[in-house]
């Protein structure tokens, strides 16, 4: 079994969609738990790509191609689960509204984060760059998103992240959302100061921290 997981991991790393589809089908035909190949094979593959991207050995188009493979196999596995009559599907694991803040046109970091979240099974509403706080909140409300993620590359625009926190509080919506902040001048110290829930040094870490926070959030709601 571990061999098929290893091959699944490699199919994502090599962005080989045909191979990934073939492995997913083989796994489903074997009668094994459908989600296992996602958790043990494809997810480690995309995580590896995210880490290597952060080291400069994997490039954005390759990361995007791997993300595309990931999205395709998740769809195949979900369809199989639905046919079997329900059970735990692979996603979406959460929904996120993401943007570069108003006044800021730097969107590379945000673009990478959007791709990484999508590849990890999140539903992402990417509002682009130069986006007012009000648009972020309205979209989150309309789409029922759980996470609002903002990126700021300038010391002059990071105050928009503070404005988001303040506006959410004033609208009595703060506890409804998990806020994530990122960008070159943004730090943990800044996140703490403005009251943001998560600061992520890079996109890969953002995915990990959001997953942890969502789990915490769900446990809090359940209890």
């Amino acid at each position: 079994m571990s061999d098929i997981y290893e091959q699944a991991k490699l199919s994502v790393i090599n962005h080989d969609k045909a191979k990934a589809m073939d492995l997913a089908k083989k796994h489903l035909d074997s009668g094994a738990e459908p989600m296992d190949i996602i958790t043990n094979g494809f997810v480690p593959g995309i995580s590896y790509m995210g880490e290597e991207f952060g080291r400069g050995t994997v490039f954005l188009p390759e990361l995007m191609e791997s993300a595309d493979v990931m999205l395709t196999v998740v769809e195949v596995v979900n369809e199989a689960i639905a046919k079997l009559g329900g059970g735990k599907t692979a996603g979406p694991v959460g929904s996120i509204v993401a943007a570069t803040v108003q006044g800021d046109v730097h969107d590379i970091g945000k673009g990478i984060a959007v791709a990484m979240f999508k590849a990890n099974g999140y539903e992402v509403y990417d509002l682009g760059r130069d986006v007012p706080v009000e648009d972020l909140i309205n979209t989150a409300e309309k789409r029922g998103a759980k996470v609002i993620a903002t990126s700021a590359l300038l010391t002059t625009t990071m105050v928009e992240q503070q404005k988001l926190e303040k506006t959410l509080k004033e609208a009595n919506l703060r506890n409804k959302y998990i806020t994530l902040v990122g960008g070159a001048p943004v730090t943990q110290r800044w996140a703490k100061r403005i009251g943001a829930d998560i600061y992520a040094e890079n996109a890969h870490l953002g995915v990990v921290l959001v997953a942890e926070k969502l789990k915490e959030f769900a446990n809090k709601v359940a209890s």
């Binding site: 995007m64 191609e65 993300a67 595309d68 969107d107 673009g111 959007v114 791709a115 990417d126």
Partner: peptide, 16 residues
């Protein structure tokens, strides 16, 4: 066209 909007949509050729 903005490559950082094209890339997350999988439009790699267009982005390049």
């Amino acid at each position: 066209p903005n490559p950082m909007e094209l890339l997350p949509q999988g439009k790699i050729k267009e982005a390049r």
